[in-house]
Structure formats: structure tokens, C-alpha cells
């Protein structure tokens, strides 16, 4: 196992390259989920505000 991890002495290079690949793409996949939550939350806030204003006016 440790032989596999050391990658014939190139372990640091190989594993950091694979780590960059996975981390960057995971962030890329996560970004739209976070943005979706933010967009919907802002929209709900806006809806609530207009609703309140309508109730006050009537």
C-alpha cells in the first residue's frame, strides 16, 4: 500500500495533481448549488416584502 502511495518516488507530484483535479471540479459542482440557495432566498425575501406592503395598503 505504501508502495502504491509513494508512486515510485513521484507520490507528491501525482497525488497533488489528482487532488487539484478533484478539488477544483468539486468546487465547480458546488458553486451552482450555493448560488441556487442564495437566489431563491433573495427571491422569497422580495416576495415577502411585497406581500407585506400589499397588506398594509389594503
Amino acid at each position: 500500500m505504501s508502495e502504491f502511495l509513494s508512486m515510485g518516488g513521484y507520490g507528491g507530484y501525482v497525488w497533488s495533481a489528482f487532488a487539484i483535479f478533484i478539488v477544483v471540479l468539486a468546487l465547480d459542482a458546488l458553486a451552482p448549488l450555493l448560488k441556487r440557495r442564495r437566489v431563491l432566498r433573495e427571491l422569497r425575501g422580495r416576495l415577502r416584502r411585497t406581500q407585506k406592503r400589499n397588506e398594509e395598503n389594503t
Partner: peptide, 22 residues
């Protein structure tokens, strides 16, 4: 998934987006 979120943001005044938000 990015395009879906962008559409939600772009069309946030429309009825179908309001329904999803609620």
C-alpha cells in the same frame, strides 16, 4: 445546473420561478 440557476436569477420576476421559490 449552472444554467438552471442562472435562469432562475434571470427570470426571478416570472411566475414559474416564484412557484419554485415558494
Amino acid at each position: 445546473s449552472r444554467a438552471r440557476v442562472d435562469l432562475l436569477e434571470l427570470e426571478s420576476g416570472k411566475d414559474w420561478v416564484r412557484q419554485i421559490a415558494l
